[in-house]
Nucleic acid binder design. Structure first.
Lengths: 151, 151
DNA sequence: GTTAATTAGTTAGCATAGCTAACTATATTT
DNA sequence: AAATATAGTTAGCTATGCTAACTAATTAAC
């Protein structure tokens, strides 16, 4: 039952899990996005901002890598965050680079987004067992690791 | 430990789980999308096609509801699927409605996408324990239920 | 030290995907 | 018959993804 490494999986089971994860990710994001839209911030901006708030300032390239997008994509995301005054640029010795950091407003907006998401979650959790909740935490962690292995 | 209903959650834990799920969903989709792009199909098209293949034919409005998007959004997704000859329209008695159904090609493409995703997953699972795998399955199921409660 | 190569970021242009508002066409209700 | 409701589309906005091609700055080569 608790065998350490499973080198081979039954195909049907792997398919099922892949589909479940994919579908769950799509629908979770769609639902959450509705909340975030009220803050006037898209999911990619929110996620990038989150990296800066919890991970500290970094360059555009580093942020792009953390978010698994290409530099031009992150460049535009940052433009949006700057326009909303959620992120600011700082010059560095290397004049090609920039350091991106969240503004106080950025921190506040992020926490507000978290608050809304968590309120949704808590509402939904009213009838959910603690077992399932623990499973969710474990699996979110698993998905994070999984994506790391995929990239 | 196995208390049935948790009416109130410690705030910090709920925040953490909400963030983990959000972040994991974003990054999982970004990674998987790279695979799907090679099939020339976007994630929304793939997800809608999946509903038609596994759930059977239905109207545009029903498909929009299943996918939690607005009718104009689904209208455009369907145009893309039709252009790629993955979906076809059937007329009904009610001439306002249409029935959308997957073509043979649509079924094939979907299974191909599944194959690619599952190959990624299996590769990544080489060093993952069965415990974590079970946790992933449980949590994907949890996320699905959670989204149902949120919508 | 000047030139070449590399690195950081942006711009331009394309596609997908989300939304609302406003429209057409058909069905249903009054 | 007329009003209302329903199904889907069109138009137009924004956000996000990409590649290719560009500028500017730094580092490496010679």
């Amino acid at each position: 039952m608790a065998k350490r490494n499973s080198k081979i999986l039954p195909g049907a089971e792997a398919y099922r899990i892949a589909d479940l994860l994919h579908s769950a990710a799509i629908h979770l994001l769609r639902t959450v996005r509705a909340q975030d839209r009220s803050a006037g911030i898209g999911p990619a901006q929110l996620s990038a901002l989150s990296v800066l708030v919890f991970g500290g300032p970094r360059s555009l390239k580093e942020l792009a890598e953390a978010e698994q997008v290409r530099p031009p994509t992150m460049s535009r995301i940052v433009v949006g965050l700057e326009r909303a005054r959620l992120v600011r640029r700082k010059v560095t010795d290397d004049k090609r680079r920039m350091l991106l950091e969240a503004t106080a407003r950025g921190v506040k907006i992020l926490q507000e987004g978290r608050r809304k998401r968590v309120e949704m979650l808590v509402r939904a959790l009213q009838e959910v067992s603690e077992d399932e909740l623990r499973a969710a935490a474990t699996a979110a962690e698993f998905m994070r690791k999984l994506v790391g292995k995929l990239s």
